[in-house]
Simulated scan of single mutants.
Amino acid sequence: MSTVKESVEVGVPVHTAYNQWTQFAEFPNFMEGVENVTQLDEIHNHWTTKIGGVRREFDTEIVDQLPDERIAWRTISGDTQQRGMVRFQSLDNTHTRVELVLDVEPSGPAEKTADALGVIGRRVKGDMRRFKEFIEERGDESGSWRGRVTPG
C-alpha cells in the first residue's frame, strides 16, 4: 500500500473549506480522473473514475467526520482499495491548511507501474492545487453537511 500526503493553504475560512469538501458531487470539478461521485446517504458514496483509460466503480464509507477538523473514509466495495483522511486547520480568519493523506493499494500492472513512477502523488498534488483554485474562485461553499460521524 502506498501513502501519499499533500497539503495546500487556501484563502478561505476553515468552515468554508470544510463545507466545500463535504460536497462530494463537486469532486469532478477539481479531481482529475473522477467522473462522478454520488452520495448514497450520509456516510456512503459511489465513485466512478477513469484513470489511464481504466474505468472503475467503487463505494466508500465515511468512518470519522468532525466538522471543521477532519473527514476519514475507506473503500467498502469494488476493486479499488484505499483509505484516507483530509484535515482542516485554521491558520487565521481567512486562511486554512487542508492536508490529505491517502493510502492506496494499486491493482493491476498499469496501476502498480504508475504508483512506482509517482503518478499517484503527482495526481493528488494537482487535485489539491485545483481544490485551492476552485474554492478561492468561488469564495464560498456550494453547500455543506456538518454532521458528526464517530469511528467504530
Rank of each mutant, 00 (worst) to 15 (best):
F24D: 02
P67Q: 03
M31T: 05
F131N: 12
V124G: 01
D41R: 02
K112A: 13
P28T: 04
F131L: 06
D68L: 12
T80S: 15
F58I: 11
E69H: 12
E137R: 05
E57C: 12
K112C: 07
G84P: 03
M128G: 13
P106T: 15
R97M: 10
A17C: 05
V104K: 06
A25H: 14
W73T: 09
D64R: 11
G143W: 02
I135N: 07
R122L: 10
G52P: 05
S144T: 14
V101F: 04
I43R: 13
T48N: 10
G33Q: 02
M85I: 15
F24P: 00
G108K: 12
T49L: 03
K125F: 08
M128R: 08
G147N: 11
G143I: 04
D103H: 09
W47R: 05
D92W: 08
F27Q: 04
A17K: 00
V34I: 15
R129G: 09
V37I: 12
E35G: 04
S142G: 03
I43L: 02
R83T: 13
E42H: 11
S144P: 04
L102Y: 10
T80E: 10
V34H: 01
M85N: 01
D127K: 02
S77D: 15
V86Q: 07
W21L: 09
V104D: 01
E136K: 11
R87D: 09
R55S: 12
T48E: 14
R123K: 14
L117E: 08
D92Q: 03
E133M: 07
T75A: 10
T16Y: 00
E141W: 01
G33A: 03
T60F: 06
F131K: 04
E111D: 15
N93W: 00
T38S: 07
